Computed example of a mutant assay.
Amino acid sequence: MRGLAAVLLCLFLAGCAGQQAPPQAPASSSPGTDTSTPIIPAPLPPTLSTTPSRALEPGITVRGTVSAGVEAGCLILDTGTAQYLLLGADTAIAVAGAEVEVTGKAEPGAMTTCQQGTPFHVEKTQRVNG
């Protein structure tokens, strides 16, 4: 019987060993002095710029010359200052060498298999008379 009581006492003490005692206030502390560890708040995540970029606005129109991309089936619009990967352009109008104007939305983060130009989802394609 004593052996069983000893085993139960050991199990009880082992179960309590993993628990932590609640924090206690310092034994002697003068009024007005805080000896506790200061709490430092976690840094806030960086904020994104709220300034809209013209390239991100829906319905913008860009003009340039169409060329074939380095991958088959990819059409690039070169504006002279930027290159756009035309996605959904009318392929009867947007052919290599043609000067066109496209209206749509640039999506710099869009995934494509083409390796050049800013992805541009075309809503309207028209040839420029020149």
Rank of each mutant, 00 (worst) to 15 (best):
G18N: 05
A82G: 05
A106G: 11
N129Y: 04
L44P: 01
T65I: 15
T79V: 11
M1C: 03
R54G: 08
H121C: 04
L11P: 00
T103F: 04
V70E: 10
L9R: 14
V7H: 04
G18I: 11
L85T: 00
P31L: 14
P22T: 09
A42N: 12
A110R: 15
L9V: 15
A55I: 14
L13C: 14
V70G: 00
L4E: 09
Q126V: 14
V122T: 07
I39N: 06
A94N: 06
P46M: 01
G59Q: 09
T33Y: 11
S29R: 14
I60K: 02
L9C: 14
P58S: 14
A25W: 06
A68F: 00
A94L: 09
I39W: 06
C16W: 11
G32I: 01
C10M: 14
G18C: 05
D78S: 15
G130V: 01
A106S: 15
G104C: 04
G3N: 08
A5D: 00
I76P: 03
K105C: 00
T50I: 09
G97Y: 09
F120W: 04
L8S: 15
L56M: 11
P23H: 07
P52F: 10
V102N: 03
T51G: 03
C114K: 07
R127E: 13
L86H: 05
R2C: 05
V70R: 14
A21C: 01
G109I: 11
P41R: 05
I76M: 13
A21K: 15
Y84N: 01
S28Q: 10
R127I: 12
A17E: 02
A6N: 10
P45Y: 14
E57W: 03
R54S: 14
A5H: 10
Q19A: 15
T103P: 04
T118H: 00
G130N: 15
Q19P: 03
A14K: 00
T37Y: 00
L86N: 07
L48S: 13
G130I: 07
V100R: 00
A14F: 13
A72D: 15
G3A: 13
